[in-house]
Simulated scan of single mutants.
Amino acid sequence: MMTLEIDRRGAVDWVTFNRPDRLNALSPELVEALHEYFDSLSRDTDTRVVLLRGAGRAFCAGLDLGATGGGDLDATAHLAIQRRVSEIVLKMRYCPQAIVSLVHGPACGGGFAMALASDIRIAGASARMNAAFVRIGLSACDIGVSYFLPRLVGASLAAELMMTGDFIHAERALQLGLVSRVVADEDLEVAAEPLLDAMLTTSPLGLRLTKECLRMSIDAPSLEAAIAMEDRNQVIAGSAPEFQEGVAAFFEKRRPAYAAELVKRTKR
């Protein structure tokens, strides 16, 4: 059985963590499959949006402690494994595709980190997320959580969640803006469809530049730096054929037709 299933639907990859018997915990095989997949996205101009979800009862329960054998490793080997897992969220942030996570059930530890590293999060009613690391004798600052969480919910709540390892459930996550909406678990895929369709009406270049600029603006040293990036992106996008098509579609009150290759791919 493949630990990572990829269902290509036109310009959207539906990517499923597929270890339901282990609540989709991150085994070495799943970690390597995620690396291989996200590495491929940097060269993929057909895929515009990635949707992440988990099979069975969970999004991802974190690292599979029973499969790592970490207790017998020296510091150098342990660091290599640690870095290999952490680099997944770096690749998620740097890939040009928008990433939407459909979170249901447990999203713990590394699963929490991957949800936080996504661009958009939709929660099922059963979703419960936590920085599980601190509950097993580790620091809660792991796999980018100490970077993403304070930026999403503020320093005080991030400290509370990370210093206790307490779960944040779907409704509170919605109130705090950690997720954009909450729906019944069985409605997650249906809830994602209008969002995916709306993103696919944007130009391929414009969507990629938006993700890049959002990522860089979070850490921009000043308003001037953020505006300089915005200006640069608008000049690039405004010089591309998609801009003329977008303007024409606006005035003609129709859906824009940006990329012929996406139409061809959908018909395969």
Score class of each variant (00 low, 15 high):
Gly10Glu: 09
Ala117Asp: 04
Leu200Phe: 15
Ala132Asp: 07
Leu138Val: 06
Leu157Lys: 03
Val100Tyr: 03
Phe243Met: 12
Phe167Arg: 06
Arg48Glu: 02
His104Arg: 15
Glu245Met: 09
Glu224Trp: 03
Arg53Ile: 03
Asp74Phe: 11
His35Ala: 02
Gly70Ala: 13
Glu32Leu: 14
Lys91Glu: 10
Thr68Cys: 06
Ala257His: 14
Thr47Phe: 06
Leu23Asp: 11
Gly66Cys: 07
Tyr147Cys: 04
Gly110Asp: 07
Glu87Gly: 11
Gly111Thr: 14
Thr3Ala: 11
Phe38Ser: 00
Gln234Phe: 14
Leu207Lys: 01
Ala107Cys: 12
Gln234Val: 14
Ala249Asn: 13
Ala184Asp: 15
Val89Ile: 14
Leu157Trp: 09
Pro204Gly: 05
Ile120Arg: 12
Ala248Glu: 12
Ser86Arg: 13
Glu36Gly: 07
Glu29Asp: 13
Ala260Cys: 08
Leu207Glu: 07
Leu178Tyr: 01
Ala249Pro: 11
Pro150Gly: 03
Ala155Pro: 03
Leu149Gly: 01
Leu73His: 08
Leu174Asn: 01
Ala155His: 08
Ser180Phe: 13
Arg57Trp: 05
Val50His: 05
Arg19Asp: 01
Trp14Leu: 08
Ile6Gly: 01
Asp44Gly: 01
Glu32Pro: 02
Leu41Thr: 07
Ser118Gln: 06
Met114His: 04
Gly165Ile: 06
Gly137His: 13
Leu178Gly: 08
Ser156Arg: 09
Arg9Asn: 10
Leu52Met: 02
Ala77His: 14
Ala123Asp: 12
Leu188His: 07
Ala249Leu: 06
Ala25Val: 04
Arg53Met: 12
Met1Lys: 09
Ala127Cys: 15
Thr164Cys: 00
Asn24Glu: 05
Val134Lys: 09
Asn233Phe: 14
Tyr37Val: 01
Asp39Gly: 01
Glu36Ile: 06
Ala33Glu: 05
Gly10Val: 03
Met114Cys: 13
Gly66Asp: 05
Gly165Asp: 11
Ala77Lys: 14
Leu223Gly: 05
Ala173Asn: 03
Leu73Thr: 10
Ala75Pro: 00
Leu90Phe: 14
Gln175Val: 08
Leu205Cys: 05
Thr68Arg: 13
Ala77Val: 05
Gly110Asn: 04
Arg83Leu: 12
Cys213Lys: 08
Leu200His: 06
Gly144Leu: 09
Ala140Thr: 04
Leu174Gln: 06
Met216Phe: 13
Ala155Val: 05
